[in-house]
């Protein structure tokens, strides 16, 4: 493997990692605060992608600028976050915070199954493809290989921006600090007067919106097809568990690790490509069950 191929593998890995991170970070955020592993996260991702592809198709067909795709993605993400995430948290999750973890997970699993069919009823089964945003930005040649600007530059930059914004939001804003406080110790937070219910709702909306945003960004690069949510959710599970549940920066590094592992596998041992994320997860969890960046929890007596 020469330097050129080495560099190429890194480029491909980074572009891929950016998308995975965007989805995984929402999942880990929700887990950190609500202690729920949200299976329906995959549905938010798929719905974000479907909504962007179908709305984008209409907008561009009407002759608007393809650069409108970017604000459109943000709008879709916020809408999915509030409309779907908000409703699900208010009407379902709220009722089950007292139940045990397995039941909570199953509730999100049920939501996932329902949303799978909702997608089919709304968008049908034909693949959607809407890449105007990607095409508008054009290509760039690196080391003799053509890349799209969108994947090589824009996606990683957006992922980085999301990471930084999230960090600032959590550390510098009041809402963010409230979220952190509840994550740290719910009982103590409630006793000093923090409205934990509001924090839960806010977190779930932000997490769902991030998944939808990931889907919206992905829709420009790939066919939006039935079943895309189920694949994404296990991958983000792997990222989140490897990083340590609730670890935001950790999720970024792990996504990068998995992205690079995958692209190097394509160059060196294509047969291992699909195994890479899970192998990494397994190896990490066997050595550090709390994940690469997780903090070991004291056992409850």
């Amino acid at each position: 493997m020469n330097t050129q191929l080495f560099a190429l593998a890194i480029f491909d890995g980074v572009a891929y990692a950016a998308l995975v991170f965007l989805v995984a970070v929402g999942l880990t955020l929700i887990f950190g605060v609500l202690q729920i592993l949200n299976v329906a996260h995959g549905s938010f991702y798929a719905i974000g992608a479907y909504a962007t592809a179908s709305l984008g198709g209409m907008v561009f067909a009407a002759g608007f600028s393809p650069y409108l795709a970017f604000p459109l993605m943000l709008i879709v993400a916020v809408l999915v976050g509030i409309a779907l995430g908000g409703l699900i948290e208010q009407f379902l999750l709220k009722r089950i915070y007292v139940k045990e973890g397995a039941l909570q997970l199953l509730v999100t699993f049920a939501v996932f199954m329902i949303l799978e069919d909702v997608q089919r009823l709304v968008w049908g089964v034909q693949p959607y493809f809407e890449s105007s945003a990607l095409q508008a930005l054009g290509n760039i040649k690196v080391l003799g290989i053509t890349y799209t600007v969108y994947q090589l530059i824009v996606l990683p930059c957006i992922a980085l921006a999301v990471l930084i914004c999230l960090r600032l939001f959590l550390r510098r804003t009041l809402s963010g600090k409230l979220i952190l406080a509840v994550t740290e110790d719910r009982e103590a937070a409630t006793s000093i007067g923090i409205d934990a219910d509001r924090v839960y709702l806010l977190t779930f909306i932000v997490g769902a919106a991030l998944a939808a945003f990931g889907g919206a960004l992905a829709s420009a690069t790939t066919s939006v097809v039935p079943g895309m949510g189920a694949d994404m959710i296990v991958l983000s599970f792997a990222v989140v568990a490897t990083a340590g549940l609730g670890q935001i920066e950790g999720a970024a590094l792990t996504a990068l690790l998995i992205g690079l592992g995958r692209s190097f596998a394509v160059y060196l041992m294509p047969e291992l490509q699909v195994l890479v994320p899970y192998l990494i997860m397994l190896l990490v969890l066997l050595v550090r069950p709390q994940g690469l960046f997780g903090i070991a929890q004291a056992r409850k007596i």
Binding site: L8, Y16, L19, Q151, T221, T222, M228, R262, V266, P270
Partner: peptide, 21 residues
């Protein structure tokens, strides 16, 4: 080259880079 990416794979970027090379 012989690539057999996973069924339903959303991203062929790496394969395409290699094919370009």
């Amino acid at each position: 080259a012989e690539f057999f990416p996973k069924f339903g794979t959303p991203d062929f970027s790496t394969e395409i880079s290699r094919l370009q090379a």
